[in-house]
Design a protein around this nucleic acid. Structure first.
Lengths: 217, 217
DNA sequence: GTTGCCATCGCATAAAGGTGTGATTATCAG
DNA sequence: CTGATAATCACACCTTTATGCGATGGCAAC
């Protein structure tokens, strides 16, 4: 193998930190660049050690791992970051993933797999605890959500709403559906009632939040 | 542990099929319900064996695993399906994920991990080869697109746009920012010019398409 | 110190949107 | 047949938006 993989470790729990640090040091092909209990000197440490991989705990005193992640990725985009946490709540996971996390391991991950994960992420993989992976996958599988509108709005009302979501004016919608503008008004009125909103904008925002980004009709 | 996990295996390569079948049989807590080289009798086999987990090869003569997957998930939504393939191209992965795949392993996965994956997926996890996981994560990381607005719109213009994206009226925005409604008009005018739109709705839709769903200011 | 951008405000007007009230027709379930 | 729902249209009235034209003060770059 080529150069050893330089790893930087952030973990506030002393025992854990020293344990992992020992493992990293003891593994051929890996080099422990540093191990710290907080990310308050993140920038200078990054600059000093130029790590290939950062193992980043999320819950730390001071700046959290979630805040540190985007900083790392903006300064050194090629550096791979593996998040570690005891929690697998959706919010954290998605924030981490959006910010460019290269891996996401729960704290119960056995040490051997952590080591494996470091190599994985370095080679371009994304090691993930399977429960975390499930949450990510579920995000894609959402589509099977039943169109709330299907049972709430009538067919025509749906047509009108789609028109709104395409940014059309009443007149344009009327033209497209070959009905009068007053009819469009009526339908929109009913849509607003059912969606409990009272403006085009609110209706669109609600429709999007509710799930239908509307698959290009 | 409770009842053993019933596994159904589809794999056209005979050696592989028999190898994995043997492993499954030999593992305590697992029961091999059946092993077949194709999915042409999928429905009857599903009905006969009621598997908890299906190991599904993608490339098979006749119907492919990708076609079989949605059938399985629609008939037995709770059945977990692990896809197996030699390819990790984006197209297949996303199709599988959208169709409800519970796991995705490349063919080079060592047997022990396959067994582990079966248990994982049965417990609600989503075992994934790390290179596959990477592709999935990259989907989320697209957002790292630089805020186009940041260089296009001035600070205040951005504030106003955010107001619009929250569904506020001019008056509400004016109140919130403590400026006059006429000032709001002016800013909005400029925003429209810069975004090349000419209505609230278009501006919002464009802003969203361009990327900034705007993380709760 | 002039030029340019930003943020602020005003006024006026036309177009688009929101809402109240009411009506006709068709269709479908009970 | 009757009642409920859906889709269509009309008119009136007021509010919100869109846009043209103009103006002032601050600030930073050149």
């Amino acid at each position: 193998m080529e150069n050893p993989v330089k790893v930087l470790l952030y973990e506030d729990n002393r025992d854990l930190r020293e344990g992992i640090a020992f493992l990293l040091q003891a593994t051929p092909g890996l080099v422990l660049a540093g191990a710290f209990p907080h990310v308050n000197n993140l920038k200078s440490e990054l600059h000093a050690y130029m790590p290939d991989v950062v193992l980043l705990d999320i819950n730390m005193p001071g700046m959290s791992g979630l805040e540190a992640l985007p900083i790392i990725k903006s300064l050194y985009p090629k550096t791979q970051v593996i998040m570690q946490t005891v929690f697998d709540d959706d919010e954290r996971i998605f924030q981490a993933v959006r910010s460019g996390a290269g891996g996401y391991l729960l704290k119960n991950t056995p040490p051997a797999e952590i080591i494996q994960a470091v190599f994985d992420v370095y080679r371009g993989g994304s090691p993930m605890t399977s429960s975390v992976a499930r949450k990510v996958l579920q995000y894609f599988q959402q589509p099977p959500k039943s169109h709330p509108a299907d049972h709430l709005l009538s067919g025509r009302e749906n047509d009108i709403l789609k028109g709104l979501m395409k940014g059309y004016s009443y007149k344009l919608i009327a033209d497209e559906l070959n009905i009068s503008i007053d009819t469009v008004r009526t339908h929109i009125r009913n849509v607003y009632d059912k969606l409990q909103v009272n403006s085009k904008t609110e209706a669109i925002l609600k429709a999007m939040k509710e799930g239908w980004i509307d698959e290009k009709a």
